[in-house]
Nucleic acid binder design. Structure first.
Length: 571
RNA sequence: CGGGGUUUAGCGCAGUUUGGUCUAGCGCGUCUGAUUUGGGAUCAGAAGGUCGUGAGUUCAAAUCUCACAACUCCGACCA
């Protein structure tokens, strides 16, 4: 490919619409252009990279027995109504009607599609396991698309769906995909972690998110440097912290004027923050009041609270009226002496406290010498882990201190069990001739997001730094002055030679000044730049610059192709 | 959906407060020519704008009023 024919409109300044570094770089380097909010055109450079990522994905999927198929993007409403998700997905789904008024959606995912595909056709356990995958556009009408390709409304996604005859088989498929994902992201040159994730209401399963570590990421994860434990902040398990046993002192009410935050109480009463109990009030969709209590220096993990309360689907902050209804008041809540009607959830660590400070359920007053085991016994309340992980908390596997970081979720593996086979009535006959639901799994990778994450993780002030495996071109050959026939011809020969040697190479034959071309090369981020100039040409040398390290060296023309191929293996 | 901001040439912006001097500028980019040629050149010339859309106020609107839209940030939400 010749740069003079390549459509890669680079920009000197970055458009105002971009905030995120990878988004800016993709616009500046001529990788993408926006068509509408959350919808992008992938220009040749981006598409080359995406094709390479997709190829890596295909190879690893196929290696595990996956078979690629192509399904319609437009899906009939019926199958979604059948699974019950037409309403669940709600406004997040792009919906449309055909000329007859029949309803469709643009698929946000394809569980319904693939399950109805095999239903009735895969009839025997002998046909299992089965793994089908697709790489295609998916649609999600995000409330707020942002960050360029990170959160867009139309995106390229790989999804593989596994069908097994039983849970054991499903777990084997899951493991295969977990391994494949590790290989894929390693091959893409990404620094990532497989993070234990919440798989919500779907029972019986596991889920891992594959998260690329980057400070700009949307998800917050806790990880252990000592072992391989990593979990999303919402999921991270925490063990009870036991306080030193103390002699119990009698409960006492004290005046604490205007001390409606933990910080104020702590200072006013001059107690350590670890000896205070913090309260957060929620209500669920049915209006039930849920009071959550954690130690003063901890934060409440809403997801854990939600999971702890039977029947709760969503939580929101409680209305003041609901709090007063149970005889308490905001800022001074505690589980002591409350009227009936509140669901009380206490963090396990709270139950281990002695002689602590908690609200007195009246304005400007707190209890001191609160000992939860004595003053609000565990029998009447829910006691479990509901705190949000913090840096320094002990790892649940090995006990070492956890670290916190941010990341970009680029893939997720998920067991589904029989959720969809059941709701869509997809069965086969097992060994004993019994009709059985498929045990399924689904495994997604955001292709565009993977590209964006790679840029987010690998860049410098001059631009993108591609890993060789997913670079739009591996090598760029630059004659410093393409108007000089001698240089151009020399560069062309080199280019032909590299091409024949199987190198993915671009010839920058544009009649631009050297500075312009160099800036573009750095911005676009080709791993290796080969420069042809009068300086080196005379002595039959070629100059090779490594984008990542900035290292420049000269090689003899005769063996430079071999040298380049060798260098590429390290990039 | 709530709150803020923005919308003027391909891109980045000024001009709006105080309506007229705006026949709307500047930088970058683009085109033509010349000189240049190892890190986004210089000179000369040129093209390019329904000032987001619609309505209104006024002798007069990029500028004031109202409505709407798009984009964007924060929040809520998120398989």
């Amino acid at each position: 490919m010749r740069a003079s024919e390549l459509y890669a409109p680079t920009l000197r300044e970055s458009p105002a619409e971009a905030e995120l570094l990878s988004h800016k770089l993709m616009l500046r380097a001529g990788l993408i252009r926006k068509a509408a909010g959350g919808m992008y055109t992938y220009l040749p450079l981006a598409w080359r990279t995406m094709k390479k990522i997709m190829q890596i994905i295909r190879e690893e999927m196929d290696a595990k027995g996956g078979q690629e198929i192509m399904m319609p993007v437009t899906q009939p409403a019926e199958i979604w109504q059948e699974s019950g998700r037409w309403a669940v997905y709600g406004d997040e789904m792009m919906k449309l009607k055909d000329r007859h008024g029949r309803e469709f959606c643009l698929g946000p995912t394809h569980e319904e599609m693939v399950t109805t595909l095999i239903r009735g056709e895969v009839r025997s356990h002998k046909q299992l396991p089965l793994m089908l995958y697709q790489i295609q556009n998916k649609y999600r009408d995000e409330i707020r698309p942002r960050f360029g390709l990170m959160r867009s409304r139309e995106f390229v996604m790989k999804d593989l769906y596994s069908f097994d005859k039983d849970i054991d088989g499903m777990n084997i498929s899951y493991k295969k995909m977990y391994d494949a994902y590790s290989k894929i992201f390693t091959r893409c040159g990404l620094n990532f972690r497989a993070v234990e994730a919440d798989n919500g209401a779907i029972g019986g399963g596991h889920s891992h998110e594959f998260t690329v570590l980057a400070p700009s990421g949307e998800s917050s994860i806790a990880y252990c440097e000592n072992c391989d434990y990593a979990a999303s902040d919402e999921k991270a398990e925490l063990k009870v912290i036991k306080a030193e046993v103390e002699e119990l002192k009698p409960l006492e009410k004290v005046s604490t004027p205007n001390c409606h935050t933990i910080e104020l109480v702590k200072n006013f009463l001059n107690v350590p923050i670890e000896k205070t109990i913090k309260a957060v009030a929620f209500q669920d969709d049915d209006g039930r009041l849920i009071l959550a209590f954690v130690r003063g220096d901890h934060e409440v993990n809403e997801i854990k609270v939600l999971n702890a309360v039977e029947g709760a689907l969503h939580l929101h902050m409680a209305e003041d009226s609901a709090i007063t209804a149970v005889g308490s008041c905001a800022g001074f809540m505690s589980p002591i002496n409350l009227k009936d009607g509140a669901i009380i959830v206490a963090d396990s660590t709270v139950m281990e406290m002695y002689n602590a400070v908690a609200g007195a359920n009246e304005v400007d007053a707190h209890f001191i010498n609160v000992t939860p085991k004595r003053d609000f016994p565990a029998e009447k309340i829910i006691v479990t882990d509901i705190r949000m992980v913090q840096a320094g908390d002990p790892c649940p596997h090995c006990g070492a201190k956890l670290k916190m970081t941010r990341g970009i979720e680029v893939g997720q593996v998920f067991t589904l069990g029989n959720k969809y086979s059941k709701s869509l009535n997809a069965t086969f006959l097992d060994e004993s001739g019994k009709e059985t639901y498929f045990e399924m799994g689904c495994y997604g990778i955001g292709v565009g997001r993977t590209m964006a994450a790679a840029i987010e993780q690998n860049n410098d002030a001059d631009g993108i730094i591609w890993t060789r495996a997913i670079a739009p071109f591996e090598v760029v050959v630059v004659p410093v002055n393409a108007k000089v026939t001698e240089q151009l011809e020399y560069a062309e020969k080199l280019y032909d030679e590299l091409k024949s040697a199987g190198v993915d190479v671009l010839l920058d034959d544009r009649k631009e000044r050297a500075g312009v071309k160099f800036k573009d090369c750095d911005l676009i981020g080709y791993p290796i730049r080969v420069t042809v100039s009068p300086k080196t040409l005379e002595s039959d040398l070629v100059e090779i610059k490594i984008r990542k390290s900035g290292e420049v060296s000269n090689f003899n023309r005769a063996d430079c192709t071999a040298q380049i191929k060798n260098l590429l293996t390290q990039l």
